[in-house]
């Protein structure tokens, strides 16, 4: 039977966070909430890396350092993604006045060029 030790609990938590993140990203109409959902999804994925690292604990270390290094790189990349998304959103609101992703009108005529 699957051992319900601490690591598995965090694994289940990671899986749940991934599901929550994807649901939030798909369902929430507001772009800022979508960016938030992507961060939650990202933290879920990184938590899974952490669980795998923890299971790989050996040679006197609390966890396998390779996935942990990957998570650090992942967090920094996820941050730059969030920063770009937020900047794009602010620019969209500045230009169009509304913060929505639904493309009601196809690219209008003036963008024909």
């Amino acid at each position: 039977m699957a051992i319900m030790n601490a690591i598995t609990i965090f694994g289940l938590c990671a899986a749940a966070l991934v599901g929550l993140g994807i649901f939030g990203l798909i369902v929430n109409p507001q772009p800022l909430r979508k960016i938030l959902a992507i961060n939650i999804l990202g933290s879920g994925v990184f938590l899974m890396f952490g669980v795998i690292a923890r299971r790989g604990a050996a040679a006197g270390l609390g966890g396998d350092p390779v996935p942990q290094a990957m998570v650090i790189t992942g967090i920094v990349v996820a941050f730059s993604a969030t920063a770009l998304a937020v900047a794009l959103l602010l620019r969209l609101v500045l230009v169009s006045g509304a913060a929505t992703l639904e493309a009601e009108a196809e690219p209008s005529e003036k963008d024909g060029r």
Binding site: A6, I7, S43, A53, R54, G62, G63, I75, F79
Partner: peptide, 15 residues
């Protein structure tokens, strides 16, 4: 708790 203190610091600071 997952014995990854480096990552905890990064998550708190950047995440």
């Amino acid at each position: 708790r997952l014995a990854a203190v480096d990552v905890a610091l990064t998550e708190a600071a950047i995440g």
